[in-house]
Design a protein around this nucleic acid. Structure first.
Lengths: 113, 113
DNA sequence: CCCATACTTTCCTGTATAGTTAATTAACTG
DNA sequence: CAGTTAATTAACTATACAGGAAAGTATGGG
């Protein structure tokens, strides 16, 4: 993957790492600082910092600065785009996408994105 | 990504390439040989052959040999696993829709009854 | 049997990524 | 203002991946 890949590619690339997926999953339970995100993992803080940066570049999270802490939180757009991308496989997959599809149907009616 | 990554990681990594995603999309329209898959792209056949191998290793496609042709077709499991993985973000994505989403959800309930 | 067809594999190059430690930036604290 | 805390950046290593050219492997046809 090149540095400035298209958004979907950046999203998939960002998610192609268990540590980054774990970070995302952690963030569904609320905001966290980089240090807090690093805790469960057996890697250095700089390593986590870089993972956070990748997630940020993909638009999956955003950071807000509060004093010397950087609070991270999830952003929905890339995951929605992923769901949209998956739609093209709905017929092929059959009804296993039903819940996802239902969500997207709602989304399309109400959201201009 | 390491060579023998977990299935989800392999799936995301396989999808983190526009050429491979295009190959998958092509296969929703039916089986195709490696040569046919290569046609729309401006890369060598070996390059496509390698992409196909990555998709295969991720379980996204399977190849069956017919004479000297390798016919490729989609396999559903990895995409279903992806949809399952996404389920954990459903609440988060839903919540981001605010009142408008709620309105549309209500509206849809009304349509159905 | 030899040759064409359809791929795949090997070898090579350039670039990207994950991780490390050490140094740096930034903001608060006494 | 010196020191501590939080996190990023820099420099480096090691591995992975995309791509091409060239050689290798099957398979079927004349």
């Amino acid at each position: 993957m090149t540095v400035d890949a298209d958004p979907l590619t950046a999203t998939f690339a960002a998610l192609a790492d268990p540590t980054r997926r774990a970070i995302l999953a952690r963030l569904t339970r609320g905001e966290a600082t980089v240090g807090q995100l690093a805790e469960p993992f057996d890697v250095s803080l700089p390593a986590i910092s870089k993972h956070v940066k990748v997630l940020q570049k993909a638009g999956l999270i955003e950071q807000t600065r509060r004093a010397q802490w950087r609070s991270c939180r999830l952003r929905p757009e890339p995951l929605r785009d992923l769901a949209t991308w998956m739609e093209q496989y709905r017929d092929f997959l059959g009804d296993s996408l039903d819940r996802l599809d239902q969500y997207l149907t709602d989304l399309q009616k109400g959201d201009r994105s």
